[in-house]
Amino acid sequence: MRQKLARVIGGVAMVALVAGGTACSSGDDAAGGGGDACGSKIAFFGALTGSSAALGINENNGVKLAVDKYNKENADCKVELASLDSQGSPDQAPGLAQKAIDDTKILGVVGPAYSGESEAAGPLFSEAGLVTITPSATRPSLADQKWKTFFRAVGNDFSQGPAAGNYMKNVMKADKVYVIDDQSAYGAGLADEVKKLLGSAVVGSDKVQGEGKQTEFSGVVTKVKAANVKAIFYGGYYQEAGLIRKQLTAAGVTAPLVAGDGVNDGAYITSAGQAAAEGTILTCPCQPAAEARGTFVQEFKALNGTDPGTYSDTAYDAANILLAGIKAGKTTREGLLEFVKGYSGEGVAASYKFTENGELDPAQVKVWAFKVTGGKVVPDQEIPKS
């Protein structure tokens, strides 16, 4: 279980980093020449409508809480939140990125939320010097593009994929596994990592279409049933995962489904139906949001009227890193980028320090398995990354 830490203001220990900073500083900005923080913006970039919206709403609500708390503490010099709805589509991402870039008041971005849209938007953000901290995009290759503005607040699929494989091998004792993915940057990458770890235990694999493009999966269901497997792994997002699980169950396939963080949301249960979803294992390179440090859970629910979901806490932490930089007087894009590069501090979900290519320090990465039990996604256990 999570180590209990002393409660700190705002749930984030960043006193040393912001000491001497003021909310309306127009003083020295070491990298960017300084400016006025009042009226500055941070943006959230992710799906708020469409088939992939559940995860984006979780995250946007976390960012909203961070901004709300900041503005209460700095009532004379507030920061605005710009929520940019990508619908989770890589096709829409470049235009939306340009919209953020063109708004000169936006100093930093929480997101993009998904790997595909990150691949599409990343080059534009890098060229513009607009810092981004994704709370959930886990495709490993995102950190290999030499984007100077890319940072990731969670572990990547090099940690999550092997952990999912280890869970199937060591906890489920599954010696026959069928692997399916949605051909997305995220889903295919995660499935590849699982295949590498399980090796000959993978007796079959197949690909489907994501982004709501496919709703009927009888072909893959027939193959899975014929393979008589002990577990099924799905790399992709919750909408298709739920439909696949529903159709597998209807065909009499009882082998449990295992999937990554793109499925780790209550919307999966809605898609599959409670009875079919029961027993599903969902991994995440994150700890349970309900166990976030300090008063995060209570404050999140008070503001948003719902409990935090997957990545609500990491999005909150990512926003607070950007806000700490603004508080410290980093009121240009260049200045805030340099601040994030050198950041080291505690959040409600994890400790944060970034490597040269923007990855979260591997020592801080934890991977958890969650289980659908009684119609809810509940924590199961922390699992080894390798």
Rank of each mutant, 00 (worst) to 15 (best):
K4V: 08
V8G: 12
V15I: 06
V15Q: 15
L17E: 11
V18R: 12
T22N: 09
T22I: 09
G35R: 15
G35M: 06
F44I: 00
A47Q: 05
L48K: 12
A53K: 07
G56S: 08
D68H: 10
N71I: 04
Q92E: 13
G95N: 14
L96N: 15
D103Y: 02
G108R: 13
P112Y: 09
P112F: 07
E117G: 05
S118G: 11
V131E: 14
T132E: 10
T132L: 10
A137K: 04
Q145H: 12
W147G: 09
K148H: 04
T149S: 13
R152D: 14
S159F: 12
S159K: 09
Q160L: 10
K169G: 07
M172I: 09
Y178E: 02
V179M: 06
Y186I: 01
L190Q: 03
Q209L: 00
G219M: 00
Y238I: 01
Q239W: 00
A241E: 05
G242M: 02
L243E: 12
L243Y: 11
L248I: 01
A250Q: 14
G252Y: 07
A255V: 00
V258S: 04
I281P: 01
A289N: 08
A289L: 05
F296Y: 11
E299G: 05
K301R: 07
G309T: 01
Y311K: 14
D313F: 00
L322M: 10
G325H: 03
K330G: 01
T331S: 14
T331A: 07
E334I: 04
F339M: 12
V340M: 05
K341Q: 07
K341R: 15
E346R: 13
G347D: 02
F354Y: 08
K366T: 05
V367E: 02
W368L: 04
V377H: 11
Q381L: 06
Q381K: 13
P384H: 02
S386C: 03
